[in-house]
Amino acid sequence: MTLDTNLKHVTSGAELNELITENENVMVCCGRMGPMCVPVYAVMEELEKSGEYDNVVFRDMLFDDPEAAVIRNLPECRSFRGLPFTIYYKNGKVAKATSSLQSKEQVTSILKEVF
């Protein structure tokens, strides 16, 4: 099972590790096809398509996939109780993590702040 989005999907922890090792800036939205998650994927698709953030790799990951433990179990997510979990990786490390719905304004503000 994968997410019904136009983003490329991360399907394993190993793939995520490779991705954040090989790319300086990576944003991963880990969720389901739910009401709070879909708008975040839409924002990411729009940012990816805009070409203004070519320095960022945008991906999603299915929250219920056992492999998503690599995100669910991050110390930065221990207090999170709202989908999606959105993680911003800089040089392989978590630079920022958010829980629940985020607007385009909130996402771009974080992209500018951490990338």
């Binding site: 389901r32 739910g34 009401p35 709070m36 998650c37 207090s79 999170f80 109780r81 709202g82 989908l83 958010t98 829980s99 629940s100």
Partner: peptide, 11 residues
């Protein structure tokens, strides 16, 4: 996102 939610099916 850390205790308050507006979506029961999500969270």
């Amino acid at each position: 996102g850390t205790g308050i939610s507006y979506c029961a099916t999500c969270d």
